Simulated scan of single mutants.
Amino acid sequence: MEPRPRRPLPRPAALPGGRPDEWATSLENCRRFVDEFGAEAARLGWDALTLFSVHPQAGIVRGDCCGVMMPCSYPVFELAGAYLTTHLWTSRKAKPWRCRGVTVWEFGKAA
Results as ranks from 00 to 15, higher is better:
F107P: 09
P12D: 06
P12W: 04
T25R: 14
P75Y: 01
M1C: 04
A111H: 10
G59R: 02
R6W: 13
H87R: 15
G18N: 09
G108T: 01
R7D: 00
F107R: 04
P16M: 02
A14W: 03
N29P: 00
K95E: 15
V68P: 02
Y74E: 13
T50V: 12
H55D: 14
A111K: 06
E106L: 13
C30N: 13
L27R: 15
A42R: 13
M1W: 06
V104N: 00
E2P: 13
T50M: 00
L88S: 10
S73L: 13
M70P: 10
E78D: 07
T86R: 07
F37I: 07
M1L: 11
A80V: 06
A111G: 10
H87T: 14
V54P: 03
T25C: 11
L88W: 08
L49C: 08
E28D: 11
A110F: 14
Y74D: 10
Y74P: 06
L9G: 01
V68I: 03
T86Q: 06
P8T: 12
E36Y: 04
D47L: 03
W97M: 10
E28I: 06
S73M: 07
G101M: 05
G81A: 15
C66N: 14
L51Y: 09
G18D: 11
R7Y: 06
M69Q: 08
S26R: 05
K93E: 03
F52C: 01
Y83C: 10
E78C: 10
A42S: 06
C65G: 03
R32T: 07
V76E: 02
E40Y: 03
A42H: 00
R43P: 06
G108N: 11
V34F: 12
A14V: 00
W97P: 03
E22A: 12
W89F: 03
W89P: 11
S91W: 01
T25A: 14
E40W: 07
G101T: 02
G17K: 04
H55P: 03
A48Y: 04
E36M: 13
V102Y: 01
D64A: 11
K93A: 10
W46S: 05
L15V: 04
S91Y: 12
G108R: 03
L51W: 05
R4L: 15
N29C: 01
C65M: 12
C72D: 08
T103Y: 02
S53D: 10
T50L: 09
G81C: 05
E22T: 14
L79Q: 00
P96G: 04
A110I: 14
A48E: 15
C72I: 00
P75V: 02
R32M: 13
A80M: 10
R62M: 07
A13S: 08
D35C: 07
C99V: 03
A48V: 13
G59I: 08
L15P: 04
